[in-house]
Design a protein around this nucleic acid. Structure first.
Lengths: 230, 230
DNA sequence: CCAAAAGTGTTGGTTTTACACCCATGG
DNA sequence: CCATGGGTGTAAAACCAACACTTTTGG
């Protein structure tokens, strides 16, 4: 930040944001993709995103595009990494600031325009993606798994109230491994980031109803000290 | 990444890189700053950095500016975060991709131009910085401390060969706390990321000479599983 | 009363912490 | 032989992993 002059207009890259939205649904970890209605990569699946406006913060651009293209709002959103290889977009130089978002499976999505097909796709069976979006997605997945083990960000994948079994299932789906029920519950309860409600969820079919819990909102970053699931 | 059109030239932000270079020297954790020779913030201390060229990768831009302004090269460099508040630069919209770098105290620096004053400054006693560089530096420091506890990146702060005491001292300076000598040594040796050389370093003045070690180059990311210093 | 899901403790092994003395060298 | 810094082991506490049965409900 020391060269005297800001670059001439002709020498500036475009700046975009791209958002990887994860959700646990159908007993699977899925990402929300849309089919590009226009070139380049017309018809290919891609991450939601778009260009940053001249006087808009990067986070705001990510939220705006998310809402415009998928109707998702009020969501956990975190900057991931900035991808800026010179030829990553055939239209010209585009530097993309990638974000990752987590939403509960109950949250509805809706395509922002009728020509754009939107779809949840399993991260274990992804189609070919436009641009370098496969790299972005892979990076986001790695970060998600990492954060899940070391922080309490996993709650963002569930609705406001949830049972401990639902929480454990979400963790298992994201991490791709089974966890011990007793150890899981003990850790979660001892971490002090849950509050018990007075309500229960009746299981569908048979079974004892499960207590509902809420996440303490102010606790997201509290847990860092020790791994939640070693 | 779905809007049909790339923004018109007049609507593009400029994209810069800024680099926080840390080094342990004079028994202190210091960052390399330069005094801005031109407006805006003329005379204020700032991070090395500059604008990304049209067909240059972001990492390459960071390395280029680092070498041009400080003569530092072949260095550990990692992308940190992208700062893009709309008014962070009075010249106009500038999105800055921040990096952090680590170098050994033995590495010489040299200002890239005679008008630019370069200086190592203690992170415990920073001057006022230009732009939002104080935020960037704070963020970089947090990341450095975090990585030091969970990965073996700390070796980048030392020369090729070093004694265990030197390594421990570097860790203590960065983390700002004392570590137990026996536990430190055991952990480092058991982590399997050091190779013992046949050489010793004569201590200045009196004292038993200390064995020299090297860092196994391929091991940088090996350690993640468990905290190095809980 | 059966099936289904919720809920609950203990033990053994491992890891981590805290802690103090002897060794090699130079002056 | 003294001062300086290098080098080493052990025991108690904390933490983690593995493991199976009882409770509540609906059909």
């Amino acid at each position: 930040m020391t060269e005297a002059d800001i670059p001439a207009l002709g020498e500036r890259p475009a700046v975009s944001v791209d958002v990887v939205i994860f959700s646990v649904r159908a007993y699977d970890l899925q990402a929300l993709l849309l089919r590009r209605p226009t070139p380049p990569f017309r018809g290919r699946w891609a991450l939601p995103g778009g260009f940053v406006r001249p006087s808009e913060a990067l986070d705001d651009a990510a939220r705006r595009e998310l809402q415009a293209q998928t109707d998702v709002h009020d969501v956990y959103l975190e900057q991931l990494y900035t991808f800026g290889a010179p030829r990553r977009d055939p239209r010209g130089r585009v530097v993309s600031v990638a974000y990752f978002a987590l939403i509960a499976s109950e949250v509805a999505i809706r395509a922002g325009s009728p020509e754009v097909e939107l779809s949840w796709q399993s991260i274990y069976n992804l189609p070919e993606l436009a641009f370098d979006h496969a790299d972005i997605l892979r990076y986001a997945l790695q970060r998600l798994r990492y954060k899940l083990e070391y922080t309490s960000v996993g709650f963002e994948l569930l609705p406001n109230e949830f049972t401990l079994t639902e929480l454990q299932t979400a963790y298992e789906i994201v991490l791709g491994k089974e966890l011990d029920k007793r150890n899981f519950r003990r850790r979660m309860l001892e971490a002090g980031i849950l509050t018990e409600t007075a309500r229960y969820r009746e299981s569908e079919g048979q079974g004892r109803p499960a207590r509902l819990y809420r996440y303490k909102k102010n606790a997201v970053h509290e847990v860092k000290a020790r791994r939640l699931f070693p």
